[in-house]
């Protein structure tokens, strides 16, 4: 038993952290929010091998697994990266192994973006940016190029998320799998995306907590920093506890996915449930500590908070994952 990360994994995290600190500043996130199409680090992450990291070396990837991807995905959340990195890491191994090699290569190279639509999920994210959609309709798993998908654009509370209600046709589709195999692969991609979202959410939480702590140290009222008051301290201590006890479940689920543990879905649900709860909780605490300035669009907090709200519901709401856990542990019919 060794429940920690290797030197290599920590180095990869640091590489991603540096890229994002340089190229995914709050100004960049805000510019995406304002539809100014800034340069994002999507290309740089591709060059560093991050987008295709879960592809084998023969497929043009780094041959890494979910435990290697865990910390980079957390960093992506910390920077509120407005790009489909969760989707790329979740989907590419399945896409590449089942006849979608050309698409996988382009996405890993940062030349295309992929969005995911599994089962009866009503919305797709990254709708405008996506060049291709990985779709499972209950019968087959296929790749649908952008031009063949009718998108009814919606407005997300997080304006960096381009969301739409999609209507798929079979036109131009590359079918990856059918029947039982398709169901199995779709379930795997869904679990990977839920896991990636859990990790991303934990990164968002870390940033929201950090913003609140810094603010509480600086903001002086009644002649002293508000962070010296116990009522504020206790809120932030609770936020830290929520986050720190969500993280290990996400790392454990990463391992379970990587080794195809028979209880993979249970472990992913535990991770996603706790990460979503923690992120909503940390967001609330952070907003309260910021006071009125946090309740503005001018302040950066909302960029992280609204992403947290959106992702808490993506790839399975809390109720969905709680129910999955219940069915696994309560011997329900």
């Amino acid at each position: 038993m060794r429940f920690g990360f290797t030197e290599d994994q920590l180095m990869l995290r640091d590489t991603v952290r540096e890229i994002l600190a340089r190229e995914c500043t709050p100004e960049v996130v805000r510019a995406v929010w304002e539809k100014k199409s800034p340069k994002t680090p999507y290309g740089t992450l591709a060059e560093a091998g991050v987008l295709g990291m879960t592809l084998t070396e023969e497929q043009g990837g780094l041959g890494l697994d979910e435990t290697d991807a865990a910390l980079p995905l957390e960093e992506a959340g910390y920077a509120a990266l407005p790009e489909p990195i969760v989707e790329a890491i979740a989907a590419l191994p399945v896409v590449a192994a089942h006849g979608g090699g050309a698409w996988a290569e382009k996405i890993a190279a940062g030349e295309a973006r992929l969005s995911i639509s599994i089962g009866d999920a009503r919305l797709v994210a990254f709708a405008e940016q996506a060049d291709v959609f990985l779709r499972y309709d209950g019968k087959k798993l296929y790749l649908a190029p952008r031009e063949e998908v009718a998108l009814e654009m919606q407005v997300s509370v997080d304006r960096t998320r381009s969301i739409a209600v999609p209507r798929f046709t079979d036109e131009g589709a590359t079918v990856l799998a059918e029947g039982a195999e398709a169901a199995e692969l779709a379930a795997l991609v869904f679990d990977r995306a839920a896991l990636g979202s859990a990790l991303f959410l934990n990164g968002l939480s870390r940033k929201m907590l950090e913003l609140a702590v810094e603010y509480a140290k600086d903001r002086v009222q009644f002649g002293r920093p508000i962070g010296s008051q116990q009522a504020v301290k206790h809120r932030l201590a609770d936020a830290l506890i929520a986050l720190e006890f969500a993280k290990p479940l996400a790392y454990r689920a990463a391992w379970s996915v990587a080794v195809a543990d028979p209880e993979r879905s249970l472990h992913v649900s535990l991770a996603k449930l706790r990460a979503s709860e923690a992120a909503r909780f940390v967001a609330k605490q952070s907003l309260q500590v910021h006071g009125a300035i946090g309740y503005t669009i001018e302040h950066d907090l909302h960029l992280w908070m609204k992403r947290a709200w959106a992702l808490a519901a993506a790839y399975g709401t809390e109720d969905f994952h709680r129910d999955r856990i219940g069915r696994a542990i309560l011997n329900e019919a």
Binding site: L209, V213, A216, K217, R224, P225, G227, S228, Q230, V232, K233, H234, L236, A237, D238, L240, I241
Partner: peptide, 15 residues
Amino acid sequence: QRNIIAERVLGLPRK
């Protein structure tokens, strides 16, 4: 304990 967490882990000021 919450005071300890806030002060020693998060680095919030004692006073």
